[in-house]
Amino acid sequence: MLKAKIFVQLKPSVLDPQGKAVSGTLSQLGFDTVQSTRISRYIEIVFAENDVEVLRPKVKEICDTLLANPNTETYHFDIEKVAES
């Protein structure tokens, strides 16, 4: 089986109020070198597939169709082998 580990992030041009709020709290906690925080979404999907090169375009299609909004988000992913459970 294969697992896709997908990160979906807001584009740098899009304001991330959650990240901003977390930055504020980190500063308050004394982490005074924190410059900025961006919150991303991390998604794992396990597939009954064994060929990484066959899976790669499918994961891309899944990201383009549903997981990421091209207006506001970018994504990247890795694929790794996982043991049958």
């Binding site: 899009v14 304001l15 109020p17 959650q18 709020a21 909004n69 207006n71 506001t72």
Partner: peptide, 17 residues
């Protein structure tokens, strides 16, 4: 409607959360 691309743009978290 924006997700279906029947209207342009996106609706994101309010600036003040």
């Amino acid at each position: 409607l924006t997700e279906a691309q029947l209207l342009p743009g996106s609706l994101l978290a309010n600036e003040n959360l």
